[in-house]
Design a protein around this nucleic acid. Structure first.
Length: 400
DNA sequence: TCTGGGGTCCTTTTCCTT
DNA sequence: TCTGAAGGAAAAGGACCC
């Protein structure tokens, strides 16, 4: 099976590439007005001069993406804005505009499915495509079809993209990074040693900073060095499942199909406060945020037509340590008050003496709304909590 | 001056019941 | 009544990705 992996550089405005531009940060008051002024303008034509400089930004937030000109200064995705401002104070700071990105995301995916219908959605700016059955898909090793897709996306959106073509998703994803920002790379099975093995392990989709650090501690830097290790050794050090997977990945083996449809597993909303808050001192403010998160999750559920029965909270303390608590109800719900009540019970099980920087509300065990109310299979008496039963006690005042 | 928000998947721990 | 094993479900945490 041959797979395309197409990575679309949705956030990297082509016309801005010569300028140091950083996108990210928390939404500020002026941002909505500025974005409103430019509503309807193609991303690339937004007059950047209207936006502030990175050095004038105060507050929390990270970089979502940056132009290549900005990256020259060492700034990049996920970096704190205050740190980035030290490295590149003259960069222009654009606010994130997810509504706009979603529009472009839909458009470029429509363009692709018209050409190659077997497409897996991997987020706002990336997809996998199985072009095995696309007419002409095999011509020139897939380059013809890749070029057609690139051109069609550019014509429809003005955005450029990189495409990797390979026998499976794992290699296609790596190949798509060979020729950024708008290249096409074809990797054949025989290219494994020459093109893949010299790369650092971190380039494998699924090897993150933790695993990479551990691999390096064992003297493994490149994918080739990883491939040279015995599967048994990898399993011993990285676990049965992950160790075996590492070995397969290093040898370029990946059997995962391109998945065109999937159901959501959970749905959540979370927010980082502008300043750390305390459960007692900032009780009113926290309470309002908490309720609003529950209402937003409920609205999301209803809008998308789902309901769930595992309600959870997440909080992050001022030292950046996170904890989660959750609670499974007997019945599915998409109701804000019910969520709020269950989440409130979860809150009682965490340490609230320390200052908080983030609060989140999550609903899991989703099913489509309107599904017949068949109780989840339960061999024994339900271990899950009954809201009404817990509610009967005196200790039920919401904490916030 | 640190470090967003929305997800998925996996492993380990805990709890419950027989 | 206590004890312990076994196994499932739920809870908690962590790694990773876009």
């Amino acid at each position: 099976m041959d797979a395309f992996y197409a990575s679309v550089e949705l956030l990297r405005y082509p016309q801005l590439q010569g300028l140091p531009v950083v996108i990210g940060g928390r939404r500020r008051r002026d941002d909505d007005a500025l974005l409103q002024d430019h509503a309807g303008l193609p991303l690339a034509e937004i007059p950047v001069a209207d936006f502030p400089l990175l050095k004038d930004y105060t507050g929390r937030g990270v970089i979502t993406t940056a132009t290549y000109a900005a990256r020259q200064f060492g700034v990049g995705s996920a970096m704190g804005l205050m740190k980035a401002a030290k490295l590149c104070p003259q960069a222009i700071l654009l606010p994130v505009d997810f509504d706009e990105y979603r529009k472009y995301s839909r458009r470029f995916k429509e363009v692709i499915t018209e050409i190659a219908p077997v497409m897996e959605d991997r987020g706002v700016d990336e997809v996998y495509i199985d072009f095995t059955d696309v007419p002409g898909g095999q011509r020139d090793g897939g380059r013809s079809l890749a070029r057609l897709i690139q051109k069609s996306i550019f014509d429809a959106t003005g955005l450029t993209c990189s495409i990797g073509v390979a026998p499976n998703k794992l290699i296609a994803k790596m190949a798509s990074e060979f020729n950024k920002p708008k290249g096409i790379s074809v990797v054949l099975p025989d290219d494994l040693q020459a093109l893949i093995w010299p790369l650092p392990c971190r380039k494998i989709n699924g090897v993150g900073p933790k695993t990479d650090e551990k691999l390096q501690a064992h003297g493994i830097q490149t994918i080739g060095e990883l491939a040279a290790r015995e599967p048994g050794w990898l399993i011993e050090h990285f676990g049965r499942s992950y160790g075996a997977w590492l070995h397969e990945a290093a040898w370029g083996r990946d059997e995962r199909p391109v998945v065109t449809e999937s159901e959501p597993v959970s749905l959540s909303r979370e927010t980082t406060f502008e300043r750390d808050l305390h459960a007692v001192r900032d009780k009113a403010e926290l309470g309002a945020i908490f309720t609003s998160l529950c209402e937003r999750v409920a609205a999301d559920l209803q809008r998308k037509g789902y309901e769930g029965r595992t309600i959870g909270i997440k909080l992050r303390y001022d030292d950046f340590k996170s904890v989660t608590r959750d609670l499974t109800l007997e019945h599915y719900t998409a109701d804000a008050k019910t969520l709020r009540q269950a989440a409130g019970l979860c809150l009682k099980r965490v340490d609230l003496s320390r200052r908080l920087r983030l609060l989140g509300v999550r609903v899991g065990s989703l099913r489509r709304q309107g599904t017949e109310d068949v109780a989840p299979q339960q061999q024994f008496a339900p271990a899950s909590a009954s809201l009404s039963a817990m509610d009967s006690g005196a200790d039920t005042l919401p904490l916030f």
